[in-house]
Amino acid sequence: MAPDAPNAALRGLVAMIVCCTIWGLSPLYYKLLAEVPPLKVLAHRTLWSLVFFAGVIALQGRLGELRAVVRPGRGLLLILAAAVMISTNWFLFIFSVQAGRGLEASMGYYIFPLVAVLFGVTLFSERLSRAGWAAIVLAALGVAQLAFGLGAAPWISLGLAGSFGLYGVLKKMITAGPVLSVTAEVLLLAPLALGYLLVTGMMPGGGSAFGTDPVQTLLLLAAGPITGAPLILFSYASRRLRLASVGLLQYLNPTLQFIVAVAIFGELFTPWHGIAFAMIWTALALYSGELFLADRRARRARRSVAPAI
């Protein structure tokens, strides 16, 4: 291990905790924009994210790389598809918070890792252990009993998990790095976002006081760094932490969302929710335990074949 490795791991740990804390507490931010229609919030989030990311890569002297990423071809089609998936995910999350359904949003991000694993098995022929399959089945049963108990499927949860899972699939096929690729994604979406804001701004009762109300204007401008900063922290942490650590720490995000929805927003938590979350948490414990043990076995194997000094 390099002399600086412990410090690098510690910095990665701090970055990951800050990243997931921002994500987990973001419902508080979007609740402050409850008077702005979700599509309008999404449009502002897209535009100010583009400004933020473009500024970052400009400081890095990588604008030329961005031009290469958006050249016509298969890569551009993949980025366009990824843009559709991430904008869908962003809209569902904003809508869920504003509609008082943050609990469903937290469930979506709890089941996302299992959805991602299922996509890996079906689309990339990845192998899954018995514990992994048990986790997926248990989570599916939890969602099914919640749908039965409430008389409706948790569509927001499924939509968030599915859109983010497909986004992950597309990102595996995109060769550009995470910051560069997401910049290209919001760049492709920016004309639609700008057009929407211009058209709705000309209509009476547009639902936004951007440019006239200083508080609302600052809140909407903040959508850029609130979206971009956690992604940069996540990228930084992922290069310095083991995969198992990254996977486990990510559960801080939906846990904070869950606490905010129930303890701060006062959303209804029924016995059906209790059973569903208990089953999903058990499924995640199975999956995370398997991931942790696999990581330990891999590190032991590497140590056993390391040459003696």
Results as ranks from 00 to 15, higher is better:
residue 122 T to I: 14
residue 237 A to P: 03
residue 282 T to G: 09
residue 253 N to M: 13
residue 235 S to E: 11
residue 161 A to F: 03
residue 41 V to H: 01
residue 46 T to A: 07
residue 284 L to I: 12
residue 47 L to V: 11
residue 66 L to H: 10
residue 290 E to F: 05
residue 208 S to H: 15
residue 118 L to V: 15
residue 208 S to A: 12
residue 53 F to N: 10
residue 268 L to I: 13
residue 118 L to D: 06
residue 237 A to Y: 01
residue 215 V to A: 00
residue 72 P to L: 09
residue 108 G to C: 01
residue 98 Q to A: 11
residue 276 A to T: 11
residue 300 R to Y: 02
residue 191 P to E: 10
residue 94 I to A: 08
residue 260 V to N: 07
residue 158 L to T: 10
residue 5 A to Q: 14
residue 63 L to M: 14
residue 48 W to S: 03
residue 165 G to L: 02
residue 209 A to I: 01
residue 309 I to F: 13
residue 308 A to R: 15
residue 215 V to D: 00
residue 115 V to L: 03
residue 274 G to L: 13
residue 252 L to V: 15
residue 155 W to F: 14
residue 150 L to C: 03
residue 210 F to V: 03
residue 171 K to M: 06
residue 290 E to D: 15
residue 102 G to D: 04
residue 96 S to C: 06
residue 112 F to I: 06
residue 153 A to L: 13
residue 122 T to L: 15
residue 234 F to V: 05
residue 217 T to C: 00
residue 47 L to K: 07
residue 202 M to E: 11
residue 251 Y to R: 14
residue 162 G to D: 01
residue 1 M to N: 03
residue 110 Y to N: 11
residue 48 W to D: 05
residue 129 S to E: 02
residue 30 Y to A: 04
residue 296 R to H: 11
residue 201 G to W: 03
residue 28 L to M: 11
residue 203 M to Y: 09
residue 274 G to I: 07
residue 42 L to D: 09
residue 155 W to S: 00
residue 22 I to T: 08
residue 86 I to N: 13
residue 129 S to R: 12
residue 271 P to K: 12
residue 9 A to K: 13
residue 248 L to R: 05
residue 102 G to I: 09
residue 225 P to V: 09
residue 53 F to T: 14
residue 25 L to I: 07
residue 71 R to P: 00
residue 204 P to W: 10
residue 230 P to Q: 10
residue 153 A to R: 12
residue 238 S to T: 13
residue 20 C to W: 09
residue 251 Y to M: 08
residue 84 V to Y: 10
residue 24 G to T: 04
residue 9 A to M: 14
residue 184 A to M: 00
residue 128 L to Q: 11
residue 18 V to A: 13
residue 96 S to L: 04
residue 302 R to A: 15
